[in-house]
Design a protein around this nucleic acid. Structure first.
Lengths: 206, 206
DNA sequence: TCGATTCAATTAGGAATCCTAATTATATTA
DNA sequence: TAATATAATTAGGATTCCTAATTGAATCGA
């Protein structure tokens, strides 16, 4: 318990516990368990395959299938055949599922409150650090690839002198700062390999 | 998915998944499941009561009791009567449990790798932000109280001009920075209520 | 001091997740 | 066309997780 690494890991563990407890609480009030709530909010945002869900949650395909079946049995989700691949399926929320997903994302949790209470400079620094971590985890194949700024061909890191808005998005043609980094952007287009490496170095530089 | 809050929550979710998957992996190689691994490493660091374990993990006392029983059945932990309270127990690791706990903490995970790869400035900023979050979660009674710098009577936030080492610990009489903030310090002594509030304001100030 | 209440912990009962291994059906490749 | 790979589920079993009820010990008030 001495290096920053160890302290950070410890801190993440504590916050993870709070997140799980909060999810049991808020999901439980709506008749769901955490895994079901996570899957439902995910497919409410965007349709996904069972394999995506499993990768997103970091569980086996069999476990994901279990939880999906629970949602289907409750009439909150549908399994439809995937038009692009006869082996695959597309998961969609039902009307009731969408309604419940909105309540879930709206439900305030203790962690959300703590984030809101964070000074905006710390918020930006936190988001920046987490973005870097997620990028590294992606490269290590520990988590599935995100549609995030730091791998997007529209991203221009550190091109402005303004310390609060050093980055630029070529898609919306606007300057922005660490606080506005996206991890799941609808306009994301993957940069080519060498281009991505250059973005990475530029953003990462301390 | 627009405000920093939402992005941060999303990011924490992704990292949580990676943490859980890593724990299934590393604990699984040693014949444990995540909950058992977390309890074992916790009691290896310091003896604890079942109620502490439950609060630490954010689960019910009954669930904690289940997992503790699993550890006891495997010969990795012992339940001893608590000398201070006849209703309570003290949990201790056995020799085999200590040995396993060391292997667990030594096992490198993907998230640990990602943390190590983080530039040290981002590490410090991350630890600072997480410390603030944990402090808020404690106040909201969402997680149990930690033996952390920001609630310690030896802590002197922002007393030095040196930007890298602005804080001071009166116990060891040394300057330190955000990167060295402790969340579980052996020398922690809780500050009085009003004193604690003053520390908080001073450290929090952006 | 004695009863009532509170508290720490476990047990009981049951639902849900999680795993690996095996199976089915579709895609891809040689 | 045959062999292999992939997407998903099912089967079987271990474990966690919940709430409610129980046991024993500590504390509080009359």
């Amino acid at each position: 318990m001495e290096t920053p690494d160890t302290q950070i890991l410890f801190a993440l563990g504590r916050i993870t516990s709070a997140l799980r407890a909060g999810l049991w609480q808020s999901a439980g009030e709506l008749g769901l368990v955490p895994a079901q709530a996570e899957i439902l909010t995910r497919i409410a945002r965007q349709s996904a395959r069972p394999a995506d869900i499993a990768a997103h949650l970091g569980v086996s395909a069999a476990s994901a299938s279990d939880s999906i079946s629970s949602l289907v049995a409750k009439g909150l989700a549908l399994r439809l055949p995937d038009p692009e691949d006869g082996r695959a399926q597309r998961l969609l929320p039902t009307e009731a599922g969408l309604c419940l997903a909105e309540k879930l994302t709206a439900a305030p949790t203790a962690v959300q409150g703590a984030l809101a209470a964070l000074p905006s400079q710390d918020q930006a620094a936190l988001l920046r650090a987490l973005t870097l971590i997620i990028r590294t985890l992606q490269e290590a194949r520990a988590i599935p690839v995100q549609r995030m700024c730091v791998t997007c061909r529209h991203f221009r890191p550190r091109v402005h002198a303004n310390a609060d808005h050093p980055h630029h998005c070529a898609f919306v043609d606007a300057a922005f700062g660490d606080a506005s980094l996206r991890l799941d952007c609808g306009e994301h287009e993957a940069a080519l390999a060498e281009e991505a490496a250059a973005l990475w170095r530029r953003f990462d530089a301390a």
